[in-house]
Nucleic acid binder design. Structure first.
Lengths: 231, 231
DNA sequence: ACATGTGAATCCATTCACAGCA
DNA sequence: TGCTGTGAATGGATTCACATGT
């Protein structure tokens, strides 16, 4: 039975666990004690076979004929995701986006804590934000060390991002959430996840265009690319 | 030859096209005229076989023995993504995040234009932001119609998101970029992409925990979940 | 000689469908 | 009976490796 917990949970599964956790928290708030894979799947927006397979990678936490205990499953998923400890997060780049991230309540949900803010602009350094003074980027390494930061969010302009990544990695960081629109090059063992607004918009535009083409029946002319390109 | 353009490009490929486009723009700025799949793959952070397979879905735009013409490939990918027209984007929810998105220059890169801003808070309505007055959410349908909005970004609190989605969909929108931490339920034919900060952090925490466990060799005790859960 | 474009092989994820258990 | 947990079947995506064309 269950080869489950011995080695690696599939990436696709890990990526959905936060989703399940959120759905479970919603159920818990409404006082639901027990939930079937079918109901939980609906709440999380996935199909129930996938949900059961995903949960089976963690272990056998359900009861046949009954379903899953909501509180128990919340705990198991939280533990698996490492949310029973709290993680010190640093945000590098306190521009529009960095500020929004620092203030965004849901962002620093249970398990995470903004422990440091950095910027290169001296006129921003010292400003207080969510009860925390912005440090100058010069202090990056020492502050990361002192405050036990283990996850770094990069919210700088694209041009600065790789350099910031290099420095935090040298300082021992192995988990980076990158909002800058560049591909970061990092050594093995460092995890980078990226959030890329313009990429997401472009993917939507692609599908939107497809829908429009299908409706009008217009065949999307080949066109002379040269005239569009120069400037 | 090439079944390419006749029917659907794989989703995984579509999701990478913006990446290639960005890498190509970087090369173009440095005056590079021609690039091999190997070099472009490095710039985009993928492997070259994947890159070639991806591009082959668009057509045969390379030259054997030579590589790809940078400008030409930029044009072809742009066209495929629908970036040769410009898309009117509305942002719903002008809080911290909505403001950051509106101001984020790279966000509204070539092909996209912020055409409307909405908020439910009367004290925000009328405020000007990126040369545009914030409209009250009551005007959602009429403004979307009037300004030809085709992509809506939801940056509201979670509780309002589904309601906003229902309304914009009723108004004819079929492309939504959702920043609110909820699973949106939408009819077939509507595309939703979500950007979820806390999910990304949780995925990083999972891997970070794995690394820590591997280093310490600590087996992650089973623990009594009850004591962690009550409150 | 060289780099693309692509069948074939492989790997991973999803879905099906049912055995096993409460 | 009802719902979980999971082998088996399916479907996609990635990678390999080379035939093809310049």
């Amino acid at each position: 039975m269950s080869q489950a917990r011995e080695r690696g949970i599939p990436d696709a599964t890990v990526a959905r666990l936060p989703l399940y956790l959120r759905a479970l928290n919603g159920l818990a708030e409404r006082g639901t004690a027990t939930v079937s894979s079918e109901d939980l799947a609906v709440a999380a927006g996935v199909n129930s076979a996938k949900l059961r397979k995903d949960l089976s990678h963690l272990g056998s936490y359900g009861t046949r004929g009954v379903g899953y205990d909501v509180q128990y499953l919340i705990y198991q998923i939280s533990r698996e995701l490492g949310l029973t400890q709290d993680w010190a997060v640093a945000i590098v780049g306190v521009g529009n986006l960095g500020r929004a991230l620092a203030n965004y309540g849901g962002f620093v949900s249970r398990g995470f804590r903004v422990a440091a803010l950095f910027d290169a602009d001296r006129s921003v350094v010292g400003e207080r934000l969510v009860g925390m003074a912005v440090d100058h980027i010069d202090a990056l390494e020492s502050v990361i060390e002192d405050r036990g930061v283990s996850i770094v969010v990069i919210a700088t302009p694209g041009a600065a991002a790789q350099q910031v990544a290099d420095r935090v990695i040298a300082a021992g960081i192995t988990s980076i959430l990158n909002f800058a629109p560049v591909v970061l090059t990092v050594p093995d063992g460092v995890d980078v996840r990226k959030v890329d607004l313009s990429t997401e918009l472009q993917i939507l535009a692609f599908h939107e265009q497809r829908k429009a083409d299908r409706d009008t029946g217009s065949p999307m002319m080949a066109g002379d690319w040269a005239e569009v390109m120069d400037a």
